[in-house]
């Protein structure tokens, strides 16, 4: 039986299994790592303040991540290091994106031997994640770290599922471009030049 989140104890018990995901998403979402603790605290305070609006039986994870993501966006805006870059929802990459990426030698090397890069991934991945837009980053982290489905992410961010899929697509492409660049410390696209 689910805990009653309107009580302090129930709220904390419901959150406990999500510690890794909530903290992980918040830490990856913020532009400045110093903001992570404040983001988590503000998100939980906001969720607690809105607990009576939560409809029991609906997706608690999607509900709680709504606050985490929005607080992270607010923190990033305050920092002004990363503006939310609005992208038209129909701006979905077409097949040519894949063709360009696929033709890139570094990307093929990345696919052929990813293990060789893993040692360098940890440092570079954090940078790569932070350089993609806030909205795409949120979708990617909710998928990869929080393990939400596209439908759950759509509910958390209150956007259509198609928008989530388009953002996820773009985020993955960008991550691969950046990781491919790590493969030879050169900008991607050299194969076509």
């Amino acid at each position: 039986m689910e805990c009653d989140i309107t009580t302090r104890d129930g709220f904390m018990r419901r959150l406990a299994p999500l510690a890794d995901q909530v903290v992980g998403v918040a830490r990856r979402m913020v532009d400045a790592s110093d903001d992570a603790d404040d983001v988590i605290q503000s998100a939980l305070a906001a969720a607690w303040a809105h607990r009576l609006r939560y409809v029991e039986g609906t997706n608690f994870r999607a509900w709680i991540f709504r606050f985490v993501v929005h607080e992270a966006w607010n923190a990033n805006r305050r920092r002004s290091r990363s503006r939310v870059r609005r992208i038209e929802d129909d701006d979905v990459p077409d097949g040519s994106f894949w063709a360009r990426l696929d033709a890139d030698l570094a990307y093929r090397e990345l696919l052929e031997d990813p293990a060789a890069l893993y040692e360098r991934l940890d440092q570079r991945l954090s940078g790569a994640i932070r350089r993609i837009g806030d909205e795409e980053r949120a979708v990617l982290l909710l998928r990869a770290v929080a393990g939400l489905t596209c439908a759950e992410i759509a509910a958390a961010l209150e956007v259509p599922k198609g928008t989530v899929m388009a953002r996820l697509f773009r985020a993955r492409i960008k991550i691969r471009e950046r990781l491919a660049a790590v493969a030879d410390d050169a900008p991607i696209g050299r194969a076509g030049r």
Partner: peptide
């Protein structure tokens, strides 16, 4: 776990 507990204690 500790980070979440800390934040919860302050937030809730």
């Amino acid at each position: 776990d500790a980070a979440l507990a800390r934040a919860l204690a302050r937030a809730v």
